[in-house]
Design a protein around this nucleic acid. Sequence first.
DNA 1: GGTATTACTGAACGCATGTAAAAGGGAGGA
DNA 2: TCCTCCCTTTTACATGCGTTCAGTAATACC
Lengths: 352, 352
Amino acid sequence: MGADKDRDQKRRIDTMEELAVAIGVSRPTLSRYFQDPERVSRTSRERIAQGLERVEYVPNFFATRLNRKSTGIIGVVIPYLNDLFFTKLLEAIERAAMAEGYTVITQCSHSDPLIEARAAETFMSMSVDGALVAPLGNQSDMKAHERLRSRLPCVLVDSRPKSMPNVDFVGSNHVQSTGLATEYLCRVGTPPIFLAMPRVNFNAMERELAYIAKMEELGHEPHIIGTEVLNDDGLFEAHGRAVLDREFAAGRLLESSVLCANDRVAIGALRAAASHGLEPGAKRQGGLRIMGHDDYPLCPFAVPSLTTVAQDVEAIGRASVSRLVKTIQAQKNQDEQIVKLFDGELKVRDSA
Amino acid sequence: MGADKDRDQKRRIDTMEELAVAIGVSRPTLSRYFQDPERVSRTSRERIAQGLERVEYVPNFFATRLNRKSTGIIGVVIPYLNDLFFTKLLEAIERAAMAEGYTVITQCSHSDPLIEARAAETFMSMSVDGALVAPLGNQSDMKAHERLRSRLPCVLVDSRPKSMPNVDFVGSNHVQSTGLATEYLCRVGTPPIFLAMPRVNFNAMERELAYIAKMEELGHEPHIIGTEVLNDDGLFEAHGRAVLDREFAAGRLLESSVLCANDRVAIGALRAAASHGLEPGAKRQGGLRIMGHDDYPLCPFAVPSLTTVAQDVEAIGRASVSRLVKTIQAQKNQDEQIVKLFDGELKVRDSA
DNA sequence: GGTATTACTGAACGCATGTAAAAGGGAGGA
DNA sequence: TCCTCCCTTTTACATGCGTTCAGTAATACC
């Protein structure tokens, strides 16, 4: 009977005040209990625990946050969702933040600077303890970013606008990773040309420059294609396919090494190669090779499987949260800026 | 000068009270202005607007929500992020909700019933106006779902647990879509076998059953493989590859039509086919065919490009928001339950 | 047994805003 | 000029809970 009553319909209680009279302790005692059960005596603790079994009560999120010095919330801004790189990053961030005891509120910019700026406003109005920002890129509203930074601890993730050089940053070492890829391709075949992506973010430029630097270091002539916008849907895959379709149709690059700015571009490139009857791969000495960057989750399942250089997304997520939490707990903004770059790791598969 | 001052450092104001004295109107007038500028006189309106130009002020999110009848927030629960289907759904939902003037708070279950239940708790404690729930599946904590439903308007999206039959639901008509795919494959080649996915959610079962029904309707013997869990990473692609690797290695299914439970499984299947030197496609009459379900964004870029049946994700997102908003505005829960299913659309490409 | 110390509790106040009711103020009509 | 009506503003109270601090009970010590 009692068990049935428990299971079926507990008495619903809306405020801590009601709960206090229902259990027979004072409201402040309950407040302390919810923040940390150790802060009340053992007897009260047990009494409250038993009381909570018999009722249905959820503390009001807004009321609890309103009057606290720390809201326990971390805000995350990401540019868009339809990319498995960002979703992996987000999952890593959420796991790390959860482990540290923070609540994560994510806002997606949907590639729109206005929405990104509004997300910053939202976080300020929520008094989040800190923010992790993967910025849109050149189009970002820098004033909004600055306001956010002036109010609360911020860490940039993945991409770092040149216009905000003295902010904490966690991302990939593109000089190393792109250099590694370039070097690998030079070693196993002809020096690569670089299939760029439209310069929507700063990583795009960084990788281009890293490619050029490594090529010159190795004594080769750099050659870049695909910086122009060819398709309007904004899909990286469609871009890669369009660029290589054009080249292959003109009889160019049929025996080249092609280093793509990222894996999604490379997947489009693979598609174009297949359409033209080409089989990119390490097996054919001197023939067409296609390589990506990032280690997108689908790489092992591409046809042929895509050789790439992996970003350590998990580590980037963890490190960014770790740094942010440290800054938050230090109260004031740390004096020295931190820039943490993770090296890429070669993933040799079939395509190069 | 004045412009410079504006641009550089506006006076920062923390509370509405301060703002009121700074501008010279009463605080409640400001409150009404922020909710709807039309609710104050034109003179006050202009005065406030001018005043806001000169200061930096963000209303406190928690305080504004605390004492309102409606928080203007819609909560969204999705099972995991590393799937472009859900990210597309989420984008559609966010766009639609934004257009309706709602703020969206998304919580990801990370495939964990505990986290899913906690997300429900969070939404209750935030007094969200309503919730859109894409449930985890069989493992979901049904009691948590029920509590959520008893407190606020809910609409299930994408997947509907059998244990909650009388809740509003918006999703795909799998009987129609899977039937369409089955029929198509029967028409252009040999009757398909069905490559299932582990039965993590209810759509998996629905599609299996729809396949069986259509096969029997057409007078063919249904044949299902891949219901067992073969790999531990939980990736659909790896599952599809593992199942077909095994079959092909045993010399089975080399000339069959294979209908995959979803596109990610199919992408793994394509990978397995390539590994065994097979070229699935409509071009070879009577030969191996592979077809998916969903129209995952990468389908056109697969090698060969993947024939599939598209779910209208955009429509599902819009309809779910629309229904939820309607329920919210009707105050009380609507009497009649609504189930809205969208038909799938055939996307014929190269693989089948 | 008495006193000093500690641990815990609860009354009172504060938080930043929403909101209903009362006061104000201006226009229009007599 | 005065009064009424309508709209706006203001006053006052409400929201649900964090937090401080004085008071009290419990414990330790002599």
